[in-house]
Design a protein around this nucleic acid. Structure first.
Lengths: 225, 225
DNA sequence: CTCCTGAATGCACTAGATGCAAAAATGCAC
DNA sequence: GTGCATTTTTGCATCTAGTGCATTCAGGAG
C-alpha cells in the first residue's frame, strides 16, 4: 500500500526507514574509512560490501556509483549559499550576506572552507581533490549549488542572466578560496596560522566581486596586499 | 636510440609520427561519428575499434579513456583565453582583450561560444553537455584553461591570488554564456537571430566582471535590459 | 498465523580499463 | 636488399564498476 508507505516516509518515524538510514550511514562510513586508509582506487566495491556486512548488490541500491559513497555528503551543503542569501537581513545586499556567511564559516573552521586542519578533514579534502574521478563528479554537486544560488538571487530581484552569472562566479570563487586554504594547510600551516590570510583573501575576493576587476586597472593590478 | 627518436619528434617530420597522428585523428573521427549517430553510452569501445579498423587494445594506447575520444578536441582550445591576454595591444587591460576575443568568437560563430547552429556543432555541444560522464570529465580541461589564464594574468602584473580568482571567474562566465547560447539554439533559434542577444549578454557579463556586482545594488539589480 | 510488500541477495552479464607477452611493422646501418 | 633493433600493434587474460533478473527474506497489517 503506497498510502501507508507515503505516510510513514513523510512522518519519518517508520522503523524500516530508520534502519535504512542507519545502514546507509554505516556503509558510507565504512567506505570513507577504507578510502582514507588506502586511497579511492585501491578499495573495491566488493571490499566495502564485505566490511559493511552487506551484499555487493545491496550496496548499489544505496549508492549508484562508487564516487557517490564519498560525495553524497556534499548534497546536504549544496544549497548553503542559497540559504545564506534567503536568510539575509532585510536591506542587506545578497553579496554582503554571502561574504558574511563565508567569514563565519572560516571562523567556525567549516570543512568546506578548506580551513579545518583536523586529520580527518585534511585527509578528506585531500581524498576528494586528489582523486580525479571524485573531483570530476563533484562538479555535479557544484552546479546544483550554482542553480540554487541563482534561484535565490533571482528572488532577490536580479534578472535571470545576472543571477546566473553572479551565482557561478560566487560559487567558483568560494571553491577557489577553499582550495587555497587547503593547499596552505596541506603544506603544514596550522588553521590558526592560516586564518588571518584566509579571511583577508575572502574579503579581497568579495571586494573583487563587488567592485569588479576594473578597479585594479589604475593601480596596475596590485590591489591585494 | 632515444637521441634519434628525440630529434625526429622535435623536427615533427618523422614519418612514424605523422602516421600516428593520422591514425589518432581517424580514430577520434570515427568515434565522434558513431557517438553522434547513436549516443555516447550506446557505442562501445569495441565497436569503435572495429569501425576504425584497429584493435581494441590499440585504441587504448591512443586514448586513455572513452571520454577522451571526444574531449581531447578541447585540449587545443584550453589556452585560448590565455593567448588572447598575451596577444593584447599594449596598454589594453586584459579584461578588455578577453571581451574583444569573445565578441570576435561570437561573430565568427566559434563552436566554443555555443553560437554555431550547424547540425554538427549543435549535435556535438548536445553530446557533451547531455552526457554526464563527458560533462564531468570536461572540467579537467576547463581547469587547465583556468590555470593557463591565471598564468597569463600574473604576467600582466596581477598578484597571484587575484589572477587565480579572475581567471576562474572569466572562464566560468564564458562557459555560462556559451551554455545560454546553446540552449537558445537548441530551442530552435537560429544563430543569426540569437547573435544580438549573445553579444549583449557577453558585454553585460564583461561589464559585471569589470564593474562588479556591487554596481547593481542601487538600481535594485535591474542593470540588464 | 498468514499474507503482502519492500528490501536484501545471488548470479549472470556487459563494458571500460590494464598488464603482459607475442607478433607485426618500421626505420636504419651495412 | 638484408638483417637488426625498436616501436607499434595485437590478442588474451584479468580486474572492476555497474545492471538486470529472479529468488529469498523480513517486518508489519489483518
Amino acid at each position: 500500500m503506497r498510502d501507508r508507505q507515503a505516510i510513514q516516509t513523510a512522518g519519518g518515524a517508520g522503523l524500516r526507514e530508520r534502519k535504512k538510514a542507519r545502514t546507509r550511514e554505516a556503509i558510507a562510513a565504512t567506505a570513507l574509512r577504507l578510502f582514507l586508509e588506502s586511497g579511492f582506487e585501491k578499495v573495491s566495491i566488493t571490499q566495502i560490501a564485505e566490511e559493511a556486512e552487506i551484499s555487493r548488490r545491496t550496496l548499489f541500491t544505496y549508492f549508484p556509483t562508487k564516487e557517490d559513497l564519498v560525495l553524497q555528503l556534499f548534497a546536504d551543503h549544496e544549497d548553503e549559499a542559497a540559504r545564506a542569501v534567503r536568510a539575509r537581513r532585510s536591506g542587506q545586499p545578497p553579496l554582503d550576506a554571502l561574504r558574511e556567511a563565508l567569514l563565519d564559516s572560516l571562523q567556525r573552521r567549516d570543512s568546506n572552507t578548506g580551513l579545518n586542519d583536523s586529520a580527518e578533514s585534511l585527509a578528506f579534502y585531500q581524498l576528494v581533490s586528489g582523486t580525479e574521478s571524485l573531483a570530476a563528479r563533484l562538479t555535479h554537486y557544484t552546479s546544483r549549488g550554482i542553480d540554487a544560488l541563482a534561484a535565490a538571487l533571482r528572488e532577490a530581484a536580479f534578472d535571470p542572466l545576472t543571477a546566473r552569472l553572479a551565482a557561478a562566479q560566487v560559487i567558483t570563487v568560494m571553491r577557489e578560496l577553499a582550495d587555497q586554504n587547503h593547499q596552505a594547510l596541506a603544506g603544514g600551516t596550522s588553521a590558526a596560522d592560516r586564518y588571518p590570510e584566509a579571511a583577508r583573501a575572502a574579503n579581497h575576493a568579495f571586494d573583487l566581486l563587488r567592485d569588479g576587476l576594473g578597479s585594479l586597472r589604475d593601480s596596475s593590478g596590485q590591489a591585494y596586499s
